[in-house]
Simulated scan of single mutants.
Amino acid sequence: MRIVGGIFKAKNLKEFSNPAIRPTADKTRESLFNILGERISGAKFLDLFAGTGGVGIEAISRGAKKVTFVDADKSCLDLVKQNIKAVGAESADHELKLSDGLKFLSETNEKFDYIFIDPPYKTDLGQKALKIIFERELVSGTGAAVFETEFDLNSPYAYLYDERTYGRAKLGFYTYKKPACVFAGTFDPVTKGHLDIIKKAENEFFKVYVAVMVNKDKTPMFPLATRLELLNTLFAGDPQVTVVYSDGLVVDYLKKVGTDYYVRGVRNAEDLEYEKKNGELSKAIYPDIKTIYYKADKSLIKCSSSAFKEAYFSGGNYKKYLPKEIIPVTEKALEELKK
């Protein structure tokens, strides 16, 4: 192990003799700090579950104002102290805390610009740490928490705005979730494409209002009650999603729920152009509106309510457009339409 950048570049770090202890690899550490870039300079940095202290010492090397190392194992902090001395960073502003990581987060009154979380992989300590960090607002508004794991990076507690993979290791970069947004449409019916956009919104927002819009000038395939039933079935047990209906303007509903964020899904350049033109009209009515465009996954580019209807009426495989949770309800609704 060695320092890969900054004033202590190429200085060697001592490692544990125990192979069960897994420090962050040099390549992963280098990528982490390349992503954070010059923002580390002058930042307050927390190395949680510090281990060898390699990440925190890298932060010192790259100009961090202060680094706090936290570990529940005294032998780890002893090694951190040795590594700080080995690279010649004794004069840097740093602090060593012998503490359980979650306990430290629960009790500290200090706020950090960046928090690096690297617990043992086969635990849920990382997600628990994210929960405490963002509930207690321990990260500055312009900062981030970074979580290293080999498992799923999505978190209900924070907005995962970037992720990278280096072999087994995955790095997730998190900031605060926004309070709420509205995703409106006819949902005639709701498809895998809609679900994809809603899941993307859930990553960024604590609450997603899925608004079924009632347009008196249109005759949908499914009645309003059915469309609401399909959505409620799909999101049963999901506290982040609230299904509603509205017969007014979208901007009026945004005001009603107290948010400026309006979510739209786009499948291609034509979709984006169309949505931006509509966004200009909405902004003329409601200047505070903030429209967020989520790009559909490549596998769902051709997935839409229109595609479902085309397949159904032509005798094709319409079920492939539907989330599996709503296929039984949709089948029942289709039988009702035949009567």
Rank of each mutant, 00 (worst) to 15 (best):
L77H: 00
F33T: 06
A311T: 11
S99H: 06
L13N: 03
A144T: 04
V263Q: 01
S91D: 12
R267T: 09
S106K: 14
Y274G: 11
T330R: 06
S246G: 12
N232Y: 08
S305I: 07
Y261N: 03
K27Q: 10
V87E: 01
F151Y: 13
V67C: 05
Y174R: 02
L48N: 03
E38P: 12
V182R: 00
G248Q: 10
S299R: 13
N278Y: 14
S299W: 09
N12Y: 15
L195K: 14
K9C: 12
K111L: 13
T24K: 04
F45Y: 06
F147M: 07
V241P: 01
N83V: 12
N18L: 03
S155W: 02
K85A: 14
K338G: 06
A333S: 05
G237Y: 04
I198G: 01
G258Q: 10
N232K: 15
R22S: 12
N203E: 00
T186F: 04
K128C: 09
R136F: 09
D162W: 10
E150S: 15
Y274K: 15
E38F: 13
Y262S: 03
Y121K: 08
F104R: 14
T191M: 09
N215Y: 08
Y209I: 13
G279H: 00
G5D: 03
Y121Q: 09
P23T: 08
S17V: 13
N203C: 01
D260I: 11
S99Q: 09
A89Q: 07
G193S: 05
L153P: 00
E163M: 09
I84E: 05
T165Q: 11
K27Y: 09
F235Q: 06
R267F: 07
K74S: 14
V263P: 00
A59M: 06
A284P: 07
K207Y: 08
E325Y: 05
Y209T: 08
G42V: 07
T330H: 05
T259E: 01
P19S: 02
A50W: 04
T242A: 10
T242K: 12
K332C: 06
L13P: 05
E110F: 12
V80P: 04
F173I: 08
I40F: 02
L231G: 01
G126N: 09
D252H: 12
Y274V: 15
S314W: 09
K332P: 06
F147Q: 04
L98D: 04
G51N: 05
N83G: 07
A296Q: 07
D288M: 13
K276T: 06
S314F: 10
F49Y: 11
F222C: 06
R267C: 07
E135T: 11
R39C: 09
A92T: 12
A145N: 00
I35H: 00
K111I: 15
D47W: 02
L48V: 07
P328V: 08
T191P: 01
